[in-house]
């Protein structure tokens, strides 16, 4: 529509070659070698008008640096709540939690994590580029670097040509990719993702799964990923945490050792099917307990 978009984007092309290095100012507490996330007997009870809701109960979870951990479980088992506790968006009622060796609150102030919500939550009055640079603006990154980083991360999520578009001009999958670029662009070591592909169709989802795996391999970030898809969890993670509802608790933890360069066809292999089976058993057990 606007002929000005192309020439203005051009000067940044050179800058977008390399992904900028993490800012030196932000010291990583996890560099000491401790776990990125560690919870002990973590519980959270919501007090509602209909009485207490036991969202989380006695959660012991450890996420090591570089892990890709999936939280899987039926809807209402507390996956989102657990992620929000890690992000300091929700306060636990009991137990301990540390993120990067400090409280979630401190970790949030240190901008330790990028959060990808279930919905893209892009601001409709900002272009895709300016949505991606939002956290950088907040963190006071100079404009030239903001634009360079936006270009680099939009490239990474295959949205290079869409910097000047507004969110409504993009499909749901593209919007979610933009929101992933937004979470990555300030280079947090920890990525928290709450069913980021839940609203997308399976073909787009497969494609994004492959991209995400690739991203994890190349950046070495620690990821905590919420899903209720078995194949997504098994395909992406090196650690699968199976949760069960009422009260939300951990039913099983499965560690896998799949080749890092696996592609979608890997889902046909016996190793994959075995792990998927064990996840399914864990989920079934959780439901059976409930009856």
């Amino acid at each position: 529509m606007t002929p000005t978009a192309a020439p203005e984007a051009a000067p940044d092309a050179a800058a977008s070659e390399a992904v900028p290095a993490p800012s030196a100012a932000r010291a990583s507490a996890a560099a000491g070698g401790g776990p990125v996330v560690r919870t002990q007997k973590l519980s959270l009870t919501f007090q509602t008008a209909d009485g207490p809701v036991y969202a989380l109960s006695g959660i012991d979870l450890t996420v090591e640096e570089g892990d890709f951990v999936s939280l899987i479980g039926p809807s209402g088992c507390g996956k989102t709540t657990l992620l929000r506790v890690i992000a300091d968006l929700e306060q636990p009622t009991d137990g301990d939690i540390q993120v990067n060796g400090v409280t979630p609150h401190q970790a949030r102030l240190e901008r330790a994590y990028g959060y990808v919500f279930q919905a893209a939550a892009l601001y409709p009055w900002r272009t895709i580029e300016r949505n991606v640079t939002l956290p950088l603006e907040i963190m006071g990154v100079p404009q030239a670097e903001r634009r360079a980083r936006a270009a680099a991360y939009l490239e990474m999520v295959n949205l290079a040509g869409f910097a000047r578009k507004y969110p409504w001009q993009l499909s749901g999958g593209m919007q979610q990719r933009a929101s992933i670029a937004r979470a990555l662009c300030f280079d947090p070591d920890l990525l928290l993702m709450d069913e980021p592909f839940g609203a997308l169709d399976e073909i787009v989802r497969d494609h994004l799964n492959e991209q995400l795996l690739n991203l994890w391999n190349t950046t070495g970030k620690t990821v905590v990923f919420v899903t209720h898809s078995i194949s997504e969890a098994v395909f992406l993670s090196n650690k699968i945490v199976v949760m069960s509802p009422r009260p939300g608790r951990i039913a099983d933890v499965i560690e896998t050792d799949f080749p890092p360069d696996r592609d979608l066809d890997f889902r046909e292999t016996q190793a994959f099917i075995d792990v998927a089976h064990r996840v399914r058993m864990g989920l079934r057990q959780g439901i059976a307990d409930d009856d």
């Binding site: 992000a87 300091d88 968006l89 949030r108 102030l109 901008r111 994590y113 990028g114 959060y115 919500f117 919905a119 939550a121 601001y123 939002l134 956290p135 907040i138 963190m139």
Partner: peptide, 12 residues
């Protein structure tokens, strides 16, 4: 709430 939470995650 999601748009507000986003700001919180950045400690805005």
């Amino acid at each position: 709430p999601l748009q507000m939470d986003l700001m919180r995650t950045y400690s805005a």
